[in-house]
């Protein structure tokens, strides 16, 4: 027996939309759940006090500092590498085996799971180079993690700048490098910023990499060689060892909401850029 095609279409559309609705429900459930239980914990003193008693009491100030520190370092290192790669790929080469190797590297690097990056950072930076569990080791490893994100978004942004811009510059006698630094990069800046913001988002939520490279010391890190416990690692330890549910929820809420806001802002910025040049 065959079902009437129109009936099966109605049925399938309903099913597909029901599943889509379910997926949206999961997203909303996660956000609402963490926000409702977490946000009431977030007070000024929670943000500005050092954790006490292993994180059972007090706030998360040191974790915020450690997070900002490793993230900043990672971005500082990855941005020139990533943007440089993107410029080279888009402005200096024709598609060939060099670009293929570079793209392949970035693609594979994006697929390397964070635990492998953690192992790598641990053996190279923590052990071999003797940086120990530190902000430096954490930042270096995170930089490798976010490099593919920055390359991909910068490349997209630079490609979106219309070729006419470059032709006009060349016809005015500007060199290639002048064209890139004065015209192409400023035009692509919103897109590059998007990549940086997405990288910040990725870094904030990362746990496996930092657990084995930056360590879990609760003190506020001062130097590059101090160990520091980021918010995600702090949350993991609080939750896993059941130290303090309210503080775990509070940390998770700050973490999740900042990541979501950053991602939304990054997306909006990229859309605006794409619209301008399309």
């Amino acid at each position: 027996m065959r079902l009437d095609p129109r009936l099966s279409q109605i049925f399938m559309k309903a099913l597909l939309w029901a599943l889509t609705g379910f997926t949206l429900f999961i997203l909303v459930f996660i956000i609402v759940n963490i926000s409702v239980k977490g946000l009431p914990q977030v007070t000024l003193s929670f943000l500005t006090q050092e954790p006490h008693d292993m994180g059972r009491a007090g706030g998360i100030f040191s974790a915020i500092v450690a997070t900002a520190y490793v993230t900043f370092l990672a971005i500082l290192l990855a941005t020139p590498l990533g943007v440089g790669s993107a410029i080279y790929l888009t402005e200096y080469t024709k598609e060939g085996w060099t670009t293929r190797i570079i793209r392949f590297g970035a693609e594979c690097l994006a697929g390397v799971p964070s635990i492998i990056l953690g192992l790598f950072g641990f053996v190279l930076f923590v052990m071999k180079l003797g940086f120990g569990w530190s902000i430096l080791s954490g930042g270096l490893t995170l930089a490798i993690m976010v490099l593919p994100i920055i390359i991909r978004t910068s490349e997209e942004a630079i490609k979106a700048v219309p070729p006419e811009y470059r032709l006009v510059c060349f016809s005015l006698g500007l060199t290639k490098w002048q064209t890139i630094t004065r015209i192409v990069l400023p035009s692509a800046l919103p897109g590059i910023t998007t990549g940086i913001m997405l990288s910040v988002g990725r870094s904030l939520g990362e746990t496996a990499v930092l657990l084995f490279t930056a360590g879990a010391a609760l003190r506020t890190p001062l130097s590059l060689f101090d160990s520091g416990r980021t918010m995600a690692v702090h949350f993991y330890i609080l939750a896993r060892e059941g130290l303090s549910m309210p503080n775990a929820y509070g940390t998770a809420a700050i973490l999740m909401i900042s990541i979501l806001l950053i991602n939304v802002a990054a997306y909006t910025l990229m859309q605006r850029l794409m619209k301008r040049y399309s």
Binding site: Y92, I102, F120, L147, I151
Partner: peptide, 27 residues
């Protein structure tokens, strides 16, 4: 200067494949 800049950029562009190689080697 332009040639020098291109060399530098190529060097930067090799960072991702270089990192991948380092990761592989050390693991």
């Amino acid at each position: 200067r332009e040639v020098f800049i291109e060399r530098v950029l190529l060097f930067l562009a090799l960072s991702s494949i270089g990192s991948l190689l380092l990761i592989t080697i050390f693991i």
